[in-house]
Amino acid sequence: MIALLVRDLRLAVRAGGGFGLGLAFFLIVVVLVPFGVGPETGLLARIAPGILWLGALLACLLSLDRIFALDWEDGSLDLIATSPLPMEGVVSIKALAHWLTTGLPLVIATPLFGLLMSLPQAGYGPLVLSLLIGTPALSVIGTFGAALTVGLKRGGLLLSLLVLPLYVPTLIFGAETARRGAEGLDTATPMLMLAGISFGVTALLPFASAAVLRVNLR
C-alpha cells in the first residue's frame, strides 16, 4: 500500500506527472476573475469565497482522469488487480495520492490566492479550513468517477458529467462555510455538514469504486 502511494507521488512529481496542473489552473482562474468582473474591491470581496471554492473544484476535476487512465494504458492496473493488494485499498490510496498532489497544494496556496481576490481578513481561517475538510471529498468522489470511466477512450467528458452533480453538495457547504467566515458569521453548521460529507464518502465510496473497477477490468 505504502509502496503504491510512494510510486504515485514519485510519478506525479517527475516529468510529465502533472503535479502543478491543478495549481496552475487555480492560479489562472483567480488571476483572471478580477479582469472579468472588474477591479472593484467590494464586489471581489463578496464573490471571493465562491470563486475560490469553484476554482479549487475545477482544478481538482482537471486531473481526475489521470488517476486510473495512465495505469490502465500501460497495463499496471491489470497487474495491480492480480497482486495481493485489496482493490478497496488500492482506490483509497489512489484517492489519497490525488489529494496529496492536487488538493493539499490548493489548500496551502489558497491564502495567497485569497489576497489576489481581496478576501476579507476574517475569511482566511474558515476558507482554508473548509478547503482542508472539503477537498478530500472531491478526490474520493473523483476517484469513483475515474473508476467508472476507466478504459473509455477520451472518457474525460463523461467523467466530468458524472462527477459534477456529485460535487454539488460539497461545493454548496464548502462555499457557504467560506462565505459565512468572510462575513463574520457562525460557520459551525455548514462546516459540520461538509465534514459529514467528507467522512461519509471516504468511508463508503471506496467500496463502490473497487466494485466498478473490478467490473471494468473484465
Binding site: 510510486r7 514519485r10 510519478l11 517527475r14 516529468a15 510529465g16 506527472g17 495505469d71 494504458e73 500501460d74 497495463g75 499496471s76 492496473l77 491489470d78 497487474l79 495491480i80 492480480t82 495481493p84
Partner: peptide, 17 residues
C-alpha cells in the same frame, strides 16, 4: 487467484521510473 502471477502484452512499466 493469489497463486497466480500474470503477465500480458502490456508490461505495466512506468516510463519515468
Amino acid at each position: 487467484r493469489e497463486a497466480m502471477a500474470y503477465a500480458a502484452h502490456a508490461d505495466g512499466i512506468k516510463a519515468t521510473l
